[in-house]
Nucleic acid binder design. Structure first.
Lengths: 244, 244
DNA sequence: GAGTGGTCTAGACCACCCG
DNA sequence: GGGTGGTCTAGACCACTCT
């Protein structure tokens, strides 16, 4: 424990919950290497006493890190920092940030933005009524100016009446209107590129692509987005974390 | 709330924690349809009082269901049952069970079972020393007698000294020896089938396949298994859940 | 204003690990 | 036996929703 414990002390007047502040500070300390793998954290009771919080609050912070896989709990012994696992990038972030984290320059080019009446597939996937209108966005995704995916998105008209309102980032639009997706289901398969896809992505016809279908949901359970992505195999790889 | 609340009462002498018992009973009630979507749960205080437990305990049970996406919490209003989402099959279960749940008859055929010295890739992925021995299993996975995947697994020798000890299920072997994987990272890409793969899987050369690399970890963070799977696109699809 | 979930406290007992 | 995490209790205050 090279850190001064006092640096972890949360601020009771900051507005953010104490347990969240503590979880974030501990997480940062681990990421920065101030806390080393296999090292043990101060005990829950020690943390509580030194930081002037209750043990339940300290515990809740530690629970968060444990749930993220950063800590190993050992009953009767202590809480230990996990040997570093690769972080799954499959969390719900926008595409550009994901690529930027991997060191690429992300870009996109619109193929079309239109409105229309929902197809049967869209009605089912998004939980709409047969006559509802939807907005559709189609674009090419690029990394360092290389096409890495062809992406088609459908959004219910009530959430996006005018598709041209989305300038760069769909997620940016949704967050700005307080419609942040909280969970999503992805179906991932492999397909051979069609002639049209090959031409768009500048690859050979028949080349293997990842075909990803994603439905995103709001916190209240309503579907907000249906996206089909065709991803160039050479550049794109999906990383997922499984739990037992 | 058609159920009698008394049926949810946990047993203090059962050995399993109260909050877990309650979470399971609530979960069952939802799955069975005894609690309908959009219906609200009794308030946390009511649950606590009727079931003779503290609010914190009731809350912890409800937290579990919320984290599983079964409940929608509404501050100042109540806890509501979520409209049913498709369950992601990407949790950490064995292959056979996963297929069985989808209504297939799962099978496998061994191609080879051997021991050897860890390759560089295996050393890195599994956190071994360069001279460590490993066991390697290679097999074909079938559903209703159709080959759907070609799978190669590497396990550190200290966990599996004799590869022929694995009869049918690797996970069965690991659980029996108290080595249950608790989390895993999967990398998922798309590749074109080689001539050899095409012949094994009875598909055309060049056909798109999912290429999945999985590393599984024990609760203590040690890697237990490295698996490469080539999955036939027509039959296999990976389902993942993302979080915000 | 009454009821709800969100946070926090102070204290308790247990099972477990370790020296 | 002393310290640890795992569970549980009985209270408290807040911000929010509903009507």
């Amino acid at each position: 424990m090279p850190v001064h414990l006092s640096e972890l002390k949360p601020d009771a007047n900051s507005g953010t919950p104490l347990y969240l502040q503590l979880a974030n500070k501990l997480s940062d300390a681990i990421q920065d290497g101030a806390l080393q793998p296999d090292e043990s954290l101060p005990s829950e009771r020690t943390l509580a006493e030194v930081l002037n919080i209750s043990r339940a609050t300290a515990r809740k912070a530690i629970d968060i890190l444990h749930e993220k896989g950063m800590l190993l709990r050992k009953r009767g012994s202590g809480n230990y920092i996990m040997p570093r696992l690769e972080q799954p990038l499959a969390s719900l972030t926008n595409f550009s940030e994901e690529l930027r984290q991997r060191g690429f320059r992300a870009g996109s080019r619109w193929l079309s933005r239109e409105t229309g009446v929902a197809t049967t597939q869209e009605v089912v996937a998004l939980g709409l009524s047969p006559c509802d209108t939807v907005s559709r966005l189609k674009r090419l995704r690029t990394a360092d100016n290389v096409v890495i995916a062809i992406e088609s998105t459908t959004i219910p008209g009530k959430y996006l009446p005018d598709p041209s309102a989305v300038r760069d980032s769909l997620y940016g639009y949704l967050y700005a209107r307080n419609l942040p997706p909280s969970r999503a289901l992805q179906h991932i398969g492999a397909v051979n590129a069609t002639a049209e896809q090959a031409q768009l992505a500048n690859i050979a016809q028949g080349e293997a692509m990842l075909f990803i279908t994603r439905v995103s949901y709001l916190e209240n359970g309503n579907a907000i987005e249906l996206t089909h992505s065709y991803c160039v195999g050479d550049y794109y790889e999906f990383v997922a974390e499984l739990r037992g």
